[in-house]
């Protein structure tokens, strides 16, 4: 399991803009680099990130090798109702990780 950091306000008012920042520990090996013997290192990146709010995808991103190691992604969503934000990262070599954050809206 890779380490993740998710920053979002847990208690919000209806209609409030929630700023979300996420970070996941991942090398994001580009596939364009050679090791000390001159052999190309295989690509190993997070290819897809998505965030769903009570089952509906509110944000998703397709990542490429140009994204720096330990991908940081900042976006926003509008607080509608109390529920769960599900963050999902998927990548090369079967990499997959999911994190849940419960937020209360009142």
């Amino acid at each position: 399991m890779a380490q993740t950091l998710i920053n979002v306000k847990r208690n919000a008012k209806p209609g409030e803009l929630l700023e979300i920042t996420t970070l996941i520990a991942h090398p994001m090996e580009t596939g364009f680099r050679a090791d000390s013997e001159g052999k190309m290192l295989a690509r190993d990146i997070v290819r897809r990130f998505s965030c769903s709010y009570d089952g509906e995808t509110v944000f998703s991103a397709e990542l490429f090798p140009a994204i720096a190691a330990n991908p940081y992604i900042a976006f926003s969503t509008v607080a509608t109702a109390s529920g769960t934000l599900v963050f999902k990262w998927e990548g090369d070599h079967g990499f997959s990780q999911t994190e849940n954050v419960a937020i209360s809206v009142a």
Partner: peptide
């Protein structure tokens, strides 16, 4: 860069604001 694409994001009205942030390699 070796590859032209950097990131593709999909968002919608529930985002509230069309502003995204990330860190890239150049």
């Amino acid at each position: 860069n070796p590859q032209r694409e950097v990131i593709n994001v999909a968002l919608g009205p529930r985002a509230g604001r069309a502003r995204i942030g990330t860190r890239v390699r150049l």
